Amino acid sequence: MNEKLKITLKGSVNILPLLIPVVPFGIILGAIGMELGFSVLETFATSFIIFGGASQIVFLQLLSGGASQIIAVSSAFVVNSRHFLYGATFSEYLNKLPMGWKIILSYLLTDQAFAVSNTYFRANENNRLKHYYLLGSGFTLWSIWQISTLLGIFLGSIVPDELGLAYTIPLTFIALLVNYFRKIDHLIVILVSGILSLVLFNAPLKSYIILSSLTALFVGFLIIKFKKGNNS
């Protein structure tokens, strides 16, 4: 078997266990888009262009709530800002690739693709074809996400409004946050962000998400600096 294809398939197979929660999340997202009044094209476009579940939900919810396009885009950007860290981590492995490859892999880089690819890159640092692993894992997740979103769009168009799918928005975010409740510093950042979002809810242009998130990030930065100071 061609080495490039072999590595690509290996990435595709290794990411499959991490896709189990992706399917219902994508279905929920598609259904929520229809519940909030967006068209099929608009809902699916978020999966194709933004390609990030949490940021897509924020984007759709803010637009449906009357926020400006600038605030909606900026909030989605803040939610996805963690990908800068992923890119910085992979830069040492992929810095010699052509720009075209970097653009494609940046688009396909998600939480799950980063998790499996980071392990593979560390173990195969000298393999000049290692980027095909990220291509396989990222493209597999991308394909499943698009299909799941389309399923959700179809289901959302036939599910009665009385079921109130919009309530799955806060439930989805609570599910994403559960794992972070285990550490006190994470809990502090979550509480700061949550409390400030309530206090600043009436901020102009629906900017409360950005303001509360940036403030919470700054608090997290101070906590890290404090912990490093005590350990030195």
Rank of each mutant, 00 (worst) to 15 (best):
F139K: 04
F48I: 09
L151N: 04
T89V: 10
I103S: 09
G152N: 10
V79N: 02
F218G: 11
A72K: 01
W145E: 00
I147Y: 02
Y107V: 00
S137M: 08
G138A: 09
A216C: 09
K206S: 14
F226T: 10
K10H: 09
S212N: 10
Y120K: 09
I174Y: 08
S74M: 13
L165C: 06
P98L: 11
S232Y: 12
L108W: 07
P21N: 08
A175G: 15
A54Q: 05
F218I: 12
N231I: 14
N126Q: 14
I15C: 04
L141H: 03
V73Y: 01
S157A: 14
F77K: 06
I103E: 03
N231V: 10
F77D: 02
L105A: 08
P24E: 08
I144H: 01
L177Y: 03
K227P: 00
T168N: 11
H186P: 02
K130Y: 05
N231E: 13
Y107T: 03
F218C: 13
N231S: 14
V159H: 04
V178L: 15
V23A: 15
P160S: 10
K130G: 09
R128S: 14
A115C: 08
T149K: 04
V178W: 07
I210L: 14
A76W: 00
I7Y: 02
D161Y: 09
L18V: 04
N80T: 00
L150G: 10
E42V: 04
L141F: 07
V192Q: 10
A216V: 06
A76M: 07
L62P: 01
L29P: 04
I188W: 03
F51W: 11
A88H: 12
W145C: 03
W145A: 12
V159K: 08
I50Q: 07
G53C: 00
L187I: 02
T89R: 12
F121K: 12
F59T: 01
I28K: 01
S12H: 05
V58R: 00
E35M: 03
I188R: 06
A76Q: 06
S213G: 10
I188A: 08
G26R: 06
V199E: 03
T119R: 15
R182Q: 15
L5G: 10
S81L: 15
A166E: 15
I27A: 11
G220C: 13
